[in-house]
């Protein structure tokens, strides 16, 4: 039972770090921490085989959102490398 409380506390901590950070690009790693913590909360809250799909869908959606924000901020959806 300690595991899920730990994830909840880490999520709140990362949210507090986001609102105290001034630079827009340096907010995105903290957003990633929130996304990890909420994925863990979803998986620990309801153990069911369909939960894997929900957790993966949430994580991929959140990552895609951060990717789109970072790409638009740096100008254009092009690939380098």
């Amino acid at each position: 039972m300690i595991a899920i409380y730990l994830c909840a506390i880490i999520a709140v901590y990362a949210a507090l770090r986001i609102i105290t950070e001034r630079n827009t690009m340096r907010k995105l790693p903290f957003l990633n921490v929130i996304s990890f913590a909420v994925t863990a909360i979803i998986a620990l809250l309801l153990p069911h085989p369909l939960t894997i799909l929900a957790a993966a869908a949430f994580f991929v959606g959140s990552t895609f959102e951060s990717n789109a924000i970072a790409s638009t901020w740096s100008g254009g959806m092009k690939r380098n490398g």
Binding site: P29, F36, T39, A40, A43, P47, A56, S66, N67, A70
Partner: peptide, 29 residues
């Protein structure tokens, strides 16, 4: 790590899969 799911996301989702459905859940993840 922020802009694409890499090994860290793989570790988390594999742990979730093993927690929910055992070894096949991890491979599905």
């Amino acid at each position: 790590i922020v802009s694409s799911p890499d090994a860290s996301a793989g570790t988390l989702l594999a742990a979730c899969g093993v927690y929910c459905a055992g070894l096949p859940g991890g491979l599905f993840a």
